[in-house]
């Protein structure tokens, strides 16, 4: 049997009251978060007292709508036993399994580790460092778009519409870089490679 919806069971006045309770509960949660962010030292008697009181008030306010809905047999966020009609009518075609996505994740992690190792060994030439980093990032971006965002399994028409954007972005990057190196040369009047560490010689 299908779940009754909230609007079938409750009158408008009930709904408004429950909405007010939810808003108040959210407000007290926000106060807790604000305190945690701005208290400086969070672990003080004052701060912990404030947090406990705010959480208690939030709990009190959320308890009203939650218990009321439970008492009347409404579970607004329950997963239905049978599929909703909109979902049942969909013909979903999904490629890729745990193994494929796990491998993609491992690839991304591996490339990230390579980047971090490059930062650890410290490549002083900014141009080389930047080029390697951007190259690795492009590979990572391609992996994410192709597999996680599933573009590899979409129609070619969608691919040829979206991918040029990325290409344009990268071309723009390479258009401005020569000028930034020229500016650097003008400023320092010496070869750019030596000046890229940020350290005065």
């Amino acid at each position: 049997m299908a779940q009754p919806s909230i609007r079938d069971v409750f009158q408008k006045s009930d709904l408004i009251l429950m909405g007010v309770c939810v808003v108040l509960a959210a407000g007290f949660l926000l106060l807790t978060a604000k305190n945690a962010a701005s208290a400086g030292n969070f672990l003080t008697i004052d701060s912990l007292f404030f947090t406990a009181v705010c959480l208690l008030l939030a709990l009190t306010f959320i308890a009203v709508p939650a218990l009321t809905m439970r008492a009347r047999g409404v579970h607004p966020f329950a997963v239905p036993e049978e599929l909703p009609p909109a979902r049942a009518a969909e013909h979903v075609h999904f490629e890729g399994g745990t193994r494929l996505f796990g491998n993609v994740l491992l690839g991304l992690l591996g490339l990230t580790v390579v980047e971090v190792v490059l930062a650890y060994i410290k490549i002083h030439d900014l141009r080389i460092f930047l080029t390697i980093l951007m190259g690795l990032s492009l590979v990572k971006a391609a992996l994410i778009v192709a597999y996680f965002m599933h573009l590899k399994f979409e129609r070619l028409s969608l691919v040829v519409t979206l991918v040029p954007t990325l290409v344009v972005c990268i071309c723009l990057l390479f258009i401005v870089f020569p000028d930034s190196f020229r500016t650097l040369k003008q400023r320092t009047n010496r070869p750019t490679a030596a000046a890229t560490t940020g350290e005065p010689e």
């Binding site: 979206l162 723009l172 401005v176 870089f177 930034s180 190196f181 650097l184 320092t188 940020g198």
Partner: peptide
């Protein structure tokens, strides 16, 4: 996503330009 990619690109390109053009950029 395409338009947001443009937004981030603009910021990252602007940053990269200033970063590469400066010999005193803090690290």
């Amino acid at each position: 996503i395409v338009s947001d990619a443009m937004t981030f690109s603009a910021m990252l390109i602007g940053y990269s330009y200033a970063r590469a053009a400066s010999d005193q950029w803090p690290t």
